[in-house]
């Protein structure tokens, strides 16, 4: 029985009268890619924001490695090993790629409250940053300014920054949204590589990508879990087809 890395219990988030996430209980197992799918407004992004600490839950629990992290701040969660990417590229638009990744890698120093030694002399940070850039195919783009990258490259940089923090759990929020066909293929390959040996929570609309990379799929509708299962079970489920897939896949 594989270990559960992250678990939610009746997780709920309300905005006024609207329940964006409504009593979601899910378990994410170590080493698996677990996809969340569902129509727009199903609460997938809200759910991710709850997991990463950027939104506070109205009710329910989140456990990470058994510890209650429901009210833990995003920076603590990051240092506990949770990494994430954002739906719209959420970078440092004025910094170079190398500096973005450097900042990410530097966060794993015991403390960055260091005032006198030049940052360049932290060799291990530089090595980790360079490795993450190279992994994501941006080795040659180190000097490019993040805000001026192409959409696809910005996604690569997002992933590189996330990897540079050496996370054990990855939250990916629609990594393929807005990409052209070729760019999407490139990112899917990258995701496949990234997912190897890591635990991933993936929110994505591209069904082909979801079914090809995921080990488990959960369908969210109106903030609730409609079904959870292996990709083939989800594909076969009549209820899921009716509620959701029928509209997206011919």
């Amino acid at each position: 029985m594989p270990e559960v890395l992250l678990q939610t219990e009746a997780l709920t988030r309300r905005f006024g009268a609207l329940s964006a996430v409504d009593g979601v209980s899910l378990a994410f197992e170590e080493g698996q890619v677990h996809a969340l799918i569902g129509p727009n407004g199903a609460g997938k992004s809200t759910f991710l924001n709850l997991l990463s600490g950027e939104l506070r839950a109205t009710a329910g629990l989140i456990r990470f490695r058994g510890a209650d992290v429901t009210r833990t701040a995003p920076d603590r969660l990051s240092r506990m090993g949770l990494g994430r990417t954002y739906q719209t590229a959420n970078l440092f638009p004025e910094l170079s790629c190398a500096d973005c990744v450097w900042l990410a890698a530097q966060s794993r120093l015991p403390s960055s409250m260091s005032f006198f030694r030049s940052a360049e002399r932290y060799a291990q940070v530089g090595v980790r940053a360079a490795r993450a850039l190279e992994w994501c195919g941006l080795a040659a783009r180190g000097d490019a300014i993040a805000g001026r990258l192409s959409y696809g490259e910005q996604r690569q940089l997002e992933i590189a920054m996330m990897l540079a923090t050496e996370p054990s759990l990855l939250l990916l929020d629609e990594p393929l949204a807005g990409l052209g066909h070729d760019e999407a293929l490139r990112i899917v390959e990258l995701l496949r590589k990234v997912a190897r040996g890591r635990t991933v929570v993936l929110v994505e609309h591209d069904m082909d990508a979801v079914f090809s990379i995921s080990d488990a799929v959960t369908v969210l509708v109106d903030g609730r879990v409609l079904a959870t299962g292996s990709p083939s079970e989800i594909r076969a489920s009549a209820a899921v087809r009716e509620a959701y897939l029928g509209e997206e896949i011919p």
Binding site: D75, S78, L95, L103, S114, M161
Partner: peptide
């Protein structure tokens, strides 16, 4: 100028550019 070149200065640069993201990278901004 020394401080701004040190790791601390890098974090400030991050906060200036995008505080929310700096926080999600693990810095208590």
């Amino acid at each position: 100028s020394r401080m701004l070149r040190a790791p601390y200065g890098r974090v400030l640069e991050g906060i200036l550019g995008n505080e929310q993201r700096t926080r999600s990278l693990g810095y208590p901004t």
